[in-house]
């Protein structure tokens, strides 16, 4: 298998992960497509540096989240108009109405978090252990635990306020 074939196989296997990350960090279809493209490009350029010291998924999350963070930093320097079109971009095919509503409620909750917390909650939702989250984000296991507890607390408080 050539380098290119191996890379394509990895992307195909994990395309859902990239899709989910791009939906959390963008607000319009074009932004999502741009970020998706940026992530695939960064994964390709960083592919040679992947040394099998960590799991491929850990490496992918790290590169993808770093790409999303650096894009956010860049956008803060060059602010631009954002079209809020959350639901439309977050699905490739129509879902049933009930699921769509729950999905929108979930994105609304996640959207209220800052970019690092978004990444942390995304990794928790992906079922990652604190240790792996630490490996991906560069935070210590304890720090990850503390931050996630705070996020849970914030989500709970928001719910109470809403109720």
């Amino acid at each position: 298998m050539t380098k290119e074939e191996a890379f394509v196989a990895i992307i195909q296997e994990h395309e859902g992960v990239i899709y989910k990350i791009t939906t959390v960090y963008t607000n319009s279809v074009s932004e999502q497509q741009d970020l998706y493209q940026d992530i695939v490009y960064q994964l390709w350029t960083a592919y040679d540096s992947f040394r099998n010291e960590s799991k491929i998924s850990t490496w992918m999350y790290r590169v993808a989240l770093n790409t999303a963070f650096s894009r956010i930093r860049k956008e803060k320097r060059q602010p631009r108009a954002v079209t809020l079109d959350h639901l439309n971009i977050r699905q490739a095919e129509p879902y049933d109405k009930q699921f769509e509503e729950r999905l929108q409620a979930m994105y609304e909750q996640i959207d209220q978090l800052n970019s690092l917390d978004k990444g942390l909650i995304l990794l928790v939702l992906e079922g990652k252990k604190y240790e792996e989250i630490g490996e991906i984000t560069g935070l210590s296991k304890t720090n990850v635990g503390t931050r996630i507890s705070r996020i849970k607390e914030r989500l709970r408080n928001k719910m109470t306020k809403k109720a």
């Binding site: 859902g16 699905q91 879902y95 729950r102 979930m106 928790v124 709970r156 719910m159």
Partner: peptide, 17 residues
């Protein structure tokens, strides 16, 4: 939405994706 509910929706989304 509590984290458990978020988790449930996320899992369903993952399956759809």
């Amino acid at each position: 939405m509590e984290l458990e509910e978020l988790q449930q929706v996320w899992t369903e989304l993952s399956q759809e994706v």
